[in-house]
Each structure stands twice: as structure tokens, then as C-alpha cells.
Simulated assay, not measured.
Amino acid sequence: MPRLLDVSDDVRAEIGDDEADRLLAGENTPGGYDCTSCRTPGDAAQDRTSTVLFVGDETAVLAFAHAACLPSQVVQVAEDQLQGAVQAVTDAPAAPDLPTPAPGAEPAQGAAQAVLGVTSGLLLIAGELHPTLVIEPTGPISRPGAEANGGDDFLPLLREQGFTAVTELTEPPAVLPGWSVLLAMGQLHAVLQPGTGGAPSQVAWWQAHQPLVVTDGWRAAANKTHTVLVFAAPAGVIGRQPREDLLRDALDKAAVNGLLVAAAMPLAGT
């Protein structure tokens, strides 16, 4: 019996028409699967199901997700991250307390050589708790092609990509079209931006060295709003705050000093 399966055009282009047709006919699709996003059971014969293709430098892994959790898509990831994601299917760690600071792997597209640090937390804005990611590089980021002169173009580069300046945290930032936050297998994998130059529909702007664990509280808030707030500040402005109230204080100070930009992004996954 044909499966309730969605194979996007991007996934079809990667795996080929023959394989896509076999999947849609139910020949190569498992009846039961663990959703690559929420990690709960699914049944391709009964549940609307998406095919999600994780593509690394040398490896590609086809996974299945509830259609309500993830749309069918191709996700470009680093090879070591892909191997970590495969391992995480059967060996997911327990969630630590929020906030959860962890180093990132990729700078903003076109930015200079610097590692991004990401902290997840819950922030109270306009009377509602919002799942939040705070991104801060480990050092100054120069504009592509510019000579290193001690300047920092991190915020101008983000504003050029659609992030907006924040002067006070009284309301959530506007949604940035084409961007999203990827939560797969119950863990944070990447911040995705629109692809360019013939790339898939989205590519990773930031990737975790290893899938980043978020707590049930953070994920519950994200599932409620279906949106993640992403704040960014230059190196040394926010720091690794051990508590969410201290993180909020640091964000408020950065906003007052004109050193904070933000965007709201749809949540991909649960």
C-alpha cells in the first residue's frame, strides 16, 4: 500500500527519481520509524511522513519525520555533525539545565574566521516566555575580503542579512523570511538561511559541533509559539551567563548600548 509520504523536489533531486518513486510506492519506506525530530514513533502507513535528507561532505543519511514536525527537505551539515546525528539516534544525552552555552562551528555566511558561541534560554518578553538563542562570536569578525584591522563587522553583516537592531526588549523581533531553527532528534542542530547560487532551499548559517541539547521547557515553549527568537551581539558583550536572569540583564545592557540585533525564526522540528 502506498505510504503517506512526502518527498520534496530537493530530496528527489538528491536521491534520484527511481529511488523517490520507490519510496512513494512503499518499497523502501519502513512502516514504523522513530521521528528524526521528536524521537517518538511514527508509522508511514498511517501518519503523514516527511523524508529528510541530511547531506555531509561524503555521507548522506535519509531520515523520516512526522510531517507535523518537519517538512521534507535537504539539510546540508558538516560531515562530523552528520556522524554525530546518526549516533544521537540511539545515544541521545540527557538535557542539562538552561541556559545551555555551547560553541558553534560556523560563522555567518561570508563572515571571517571566528567561532560562534550559542546560548539557549527562555526570556520573558511582553508577558510571554520565548525560546531564545543568543549568538556571540569568540572574536571580531571582519567583512569578507577586508584586511584584519581590529574592527568588527559582525552586526553590520547581520543587518545586511535582515536582522534588526534592538534598543529595548519590550516586544519580539520581526520574523526573518527564509530562515529557521532546525531541531532534529530532539536536539538543536543548526540555524538555517536561504540557499544561494543553486544551493538547496536552505543551508546552515550556524551548525553545532555536536547536536545541542535543549530542555523540555525550552522545547515546550518553542512548540507553543512555533518560533525561536535569535539575538546576536559582538564578541565579549554578552558572555557565558550561568543563569537566565543574568542573560536577560546582559541582553538589556547590549540593547541600550546599541550592540544587539535580533530576528524571529520559525521552528523546524519539535
Results as ranks from 00 to 15, higher is better:
187 Q>S: 13
157 L>C: 00
172 P>M: 04
178 G>D: 04
182 L>N: 02
197 G>P: 06
196 T>M: 11
175 V>Y: 01
158 L>G: 03
161 Q>P: 03
162 G>E: 02
179 W>F: 13
187 Q>R: 15
187 Q>Y: 06
193 Q>M: 15
170 T>Q: 13
160 E>R: 09
174 A>G: 13
170 T>H: 11
155 L>R: 05
172 P>Q: 05
161 Q>C: 03
161 Q>M: 15
173 P>M: 05
164 T>L: 10
162 G>Y: 01
190 A>P: 06
167 T>S: 12
167 T>I: 05
164 T>D: 07
163 F>K: 03
171 E>A: 15
168 E>L: 04
187 Q>H: 12
162 G>P: 09
175 V>D: 11
177 P>Q: 11
156 P>R: 06
189 H>T: 05
172 P>A: 10
197 G>H: 11
160 E>F: 00
183 L>D: 02
157 L>K: 00
151 G>I: 00
179 W>Y: 15
166 V>F: 03
191 V>D: 01
166 V>H: 03
176 L>T: 03
175 V>F: 03
152 D>P: 08
182 L>A: 10
164 T>F: 01
182 L>D: 06
174 A>M: 09
186 G>W: 07
162 G>A: 05
167 T>V: 10
153 D>N: 11
154 F>P: 03
171 E>R: 13
166 V>A: 02
186 G>N: 11
177 P>A: 10
161 Q>E: 13
184 A>S: 14
191 V>G: 02
166 V>W: 02
156 P>F: 07
153 D>M: 04
167 T>Q: 13
165 A>V: 11
191 V>W: 07
172 P>F: 06
167 T>C: 01
174 A>T: 14
193 Q>H: 14
174 A>S: 14
191 V>A: 02
177 P>N: 10
182 L>V: 05
196 T>E: 14
153 D>A: 14
174 A>L: 11
154 F>D: 00
170 T>M: 07
166 V>M: 12
179 W>K: 02
172 P>V: 11
159 R>K: 13
156 P>S: 05
197 G>E: 12
194 P>V: 06
191 V>Q: 10
196 T>H: 12
152 D>L: 02
183 L>H: 11
185 M>K: 10
179 W>M: 01
157 L>R: 00
184 A>Y: 01
154 F>K: 00
157 L>N: 00
161 Q>F: 05
185 M>S: 14
192 L>G: 00
162 G>C: 07
152 D>A: 04
186 G>E: 08
157 L>W: 00
155 L>I: 14
190 A>Q: 12
185 M>V: 02
183 L>F: 08
186 G>Y: 09
168 E>F: 04
181 V>E: 04
189 H>F: 01
155 L>P: 08
177 P>R: 10
152 D>S: 07
176 L>R: 03
161 Q>R: 14
158 L>C: 07
157 L>M: 15
175 V>R: 14
153 D>T: 06
158 L>A: 05
192 L>R: 15
151 G>V: 06
180 S>T: 09
182 L>S: 04
185 M>H: 15
174 A>E: 15
180 S>A: 14
184 A>I: 01
182 L>R: 09
189 H>P: 00
157 L>T: 01
187 Q>G: 12
155 L>D: 07
152 D>Y: 05
